[in-house]
Amino acid sequence: MEPRTITLTVNGDRRCVAVRPNLTLVEALRDELHLTGTKQGCGTGDCGACTVYLDGRPVNSCLTLAVEADGRSVTTVEGLAPSGTELHPVQEAFIAHGAVQCGYCTPGMVMSSAALLSREPAADEPSVRHALAGNLCRCTGYTKIVEAVLACVGDGSCGAHGAAAAEGKA
């Protein structure tokens, strides 16, 4: 089980990293690339805290081998905001609506929410709840999270941001 060197684009930056085949993407992001915004809550794809975009698609990075990301593009929560001072509208809405408590599910929630809004900018409440059903939260009862996402529907800003981030161009 020799380490392999993989090259991937993370949040727009080309990165090379040597990984053993049994390393998962979340482990590589956190332990090797020091992108600790992505959380590991279960390791079995059930909690969604590790959600990242792989070639623009939201996936569980704990169910993805790091070697699978070779030659591909990964966006993590650190790459969602357009700049260090400006946030993605979903991030702003989470803050304003009190959708954050302990914050451990938050990076994954934010990533799932932004992915939904880029796919369905006019999502209604059932769609939001369905889209977030792969992200567990133990603090908020999801109420304010759903409110925050719905607040982004209709202002039009999320679609563009989400699409850009989803393509790894943000």
């Binding site: 794809g45 969604g48 959600t51 792989l54 996936v59 169910l63 992915a115 889209a131 792969g134």
Partner: peptide
């Protein structure tokens, strides 16, 4: 498929 697992799983 819509009832199968979660959005993240369906994208992988």
């Amino acid at each position: 498929i819509r009832t199968l697992a979660t959005v993240q799983v369906r994208h992988k």
